[in-house]
Design a binder for these strands. Sequence first.
RNA 1: GGGGAGGUGGCUGAGUGGCCGAAAGCACCCGCCUGCUAAGCGGGUAGGGGGUGUAAAGCUCCCUCGAGGGUUCGAAUCCCUCCCUUCCCGCCA
Length: 420
Amino acid sequence: MLSLDFIRKNSDLVRRAAELKGEPAPVDEILRLDKLWRGHQRNAETIKAEQNELSKQFAKTRDEALKERLRQMADTAKSELAVAEAVKRELDDLLLRVPNVFHGSVPIGETEAENVVVREWGSKPDLGFAPRTHFDLGEALGIMDFERAARVSGSRFAFLIGEGARLERALVQFMLDVHTLEHGYVEVWPPMLVNSASMVGTANLPKFADAAFRVEGRDLWLIPTAEVPVTNLHREEILDADRLPLKYVAYAPSWRTEAGAAGKDTRGFIRLHQFSKVELVKVTSAETSLDEFEQLTRDAEDVLQRLGLHYQVMAMCTGDMGFAQYKKYDLNAWAPGLDRFLEVSSCSTFNDFQAMRANIRYRPGRGTPPKFAHTINGSGLALPRTIDAIIETYQRSDGMIRVPDVLKPYMGGVELIGAR
RNA sequence: GGGGAGGUGGCUGAGUGGCCGAAAGCACCCGCCUGCUAAGCGGGUAGGGGGUGUAAAGCUCCCUCGAGGGUUCGAAUCCCUCCCUUCCCGCCA
């Protein structure tokens, strides 16, 4: 969230940022409630101060008339405070609904058409034959099964079977190894159900309740991404500055309702209610967050390069970047069979927007007051679409799939999927 | 699931109605002292918010001892509810 103080001092900036993001921002209502709250707060405090003073007197004098007066003061203070608190609750709720501002380098635009490709790696492979889609190949090879998944669970679920399941496990292992052994991230195995406070911390609540699955009768949500538990790992903490940046990598399934995605990507292993993801999360100081964000993006790209997948890095424009993000890149991998790019990673930096919600702070130096940390995350990478890109890029004209070199050590001797 | 114990500052931990936002120790910071190190001596160090400062500093007030409610002129301290931790028993991958 943005601090009340920041909104007071930069109301025009906040209004303008929200407009460019295409998000509503109740700035005027916030400023109105702020005045109201402070008025009542002040009244309550003034009475309280006097009451505290007189109460000390009473302890000595035991004067009955004073006692009666104190009783009345306590009542007045209490009711005044109750009003202040009610207004403050309303105010806090609105604050959670104000979108983040964005960095000066973010392209201004309304739709994805105005996103900007900042770099590309590799090129579209020429397979020498008409490439088939991953679902066509996957079903033919018996490594993907959507029909049975629909019977077992419903639409937007999938089975991976045999070498398909093995490929997924190999990718997870490979990615975790790259990030822990070579990029310096600490591996985390997080809870996959989280409470509402954590969902608020990462800004998945209150605005995006529809996007997540909730456990009936409990204050628990299936994580829409490992970002939620891992970013909240240090909620309500004050961290030592010399421990920063914290770098975590977590493998976890992600669950999403895909509300509002009706009709989109209904075919194939692309948009599912459950999918695996290896997630990168950093907690940094304010000074280093932009550099750390760029590096995290490079760390995710490294995985694509090692897999030999053609991809582009897309800077999201204001209208497409989202409520909480301060700056965001998507990594899109080329899928020859689908003849389009697939979003396999989304890397974002949030400034202190999430840290304020989750109350994650650090102390810049001895004896200095704590500051809110900056949080960053990105997929490194999301599994299904990476699998799609691999299958479609490494397919042979006979319908079998070569295993990328870097995955061979993880595939238990399988070098060609479908050969067995 | 049943029963016991407990949740206090960066950490350990004392505190059962006002003298307590809180003893003591550890850690850390500043200064003194010793030719260096260690030791020693003195001082400092919770968070949030309101008001006043252009801002920082400062000053001042309010709130916070797991969370919420209650009793009381006054609550870390008494009462109720909830959450969490831990131990014993039961169950279980």
